[in-house]
Design a protein around this nucleic acid. Structure first.
Lengths: 142, 142
DNA sequence: CTGCAAAATTAGACATTTTCTTTATTGCCT
DNA sequence: AGGCAATAAAGAAAATGTCTAATTTTGCAG
């Protein structure tokens, strides 16, 4: 599998690559921290001083619509985003707030498709809430 | 399995059953519509005119903490609640906004437990997003 | 190159949801 | 009855996300 540029990645997903959209997409690809819209805005406004919050929100919505990114609703307070589109699960540590990726070969992940009752699922999300290994260690030390 | 009263249900979960807490819990048990905190407040304030929104929020948080109810973060705009604690999946219809329950025998549901990496999951949520059977029919008719 | 139309971006006001703080009330125990 | 701790109320406040209107940029045609 060849790594493609962010520019081409956007084109592949039919997103016109403006400076702002490239910056948001690159941020998602380089930081696997599942950032919120606000975190992205705060980081990028240093490089693009005229950037507006609205643009970040618009861009993220567009990226998700075009399948270039994923929206996570695991945290009750904030929607956050993930550049990884391949199916995988997520764990939210309720102690530190970190969101972890759990590859598909490590946990069961349900697939989209037709559900009982005749509903059609376009996407499936598997979310765990609990305590991460780091926080468990820290708590054991106390 | 014997059906127990809401009063005893709260006691079982170590929640002191005040009038307000009973009302919130009963609302959840009688309406399987996955209401938001505000929907619960609006409905209950008719019966309990002095009810405050803060109390509804506090009560819901307490119920979730004690395992008497479940918090769903499937909808990006609103957190909603569910009295069913047994594991089951949920579908959000992105056309009409309804949240459906999907019993555990109809879809794969992951269980809490120890995850790869040493994380410990206390709860697992499986969320589908798509279009419900009703909306599919309606769209086909157009 | 110049001008036009469409798309994208900006800024800030706005709306909504949730939390915080303070005060009042309730219920229980002696 | 009096006092204490837990619960609830009210409104202010914070945080998050959305809307509107205006400006800027882009792509294209002449």
């Amino acid at each position: 599998m060849t790594k493609i540029s962010t520019y081409d990645y956007l084109l592949e997903h039919r997103v016109k690559p403006s400076v702002q959209r490239l910056a948001v997409m690159e941020y998602l690809q380089q930081h696997h921290t599942h950032p919120t819209a606000d975190e992205i805005y705060v980081h990028l406004v240093n490089k693009i001083p005229t950037l507006s919050k609205t643009t970040v929100y618009n861009t993220l919505r567009l990226l998700v619509e075009q399948g270039a990114a994923r929206m996570l609703t695991i945290d009750e307070h904030n929607v956050c985003f993930d550049a990884m589109v391949e199916p995988h699960a997520h764990l939210l540590c309720t102690a530190c707030g970190t969101v972890y990726d759990l590859p598909v070969d490590q946990v069961p992940v349900a697939a989209p498709g037709v559900l009982p009752g005749g509903h059609v699922a376009r996407e499936a999300s598997l979310y765990y809430r609990g305590t991460c290994a780091d926080c468990l260690r820290r708590q054991a030390g106390n």
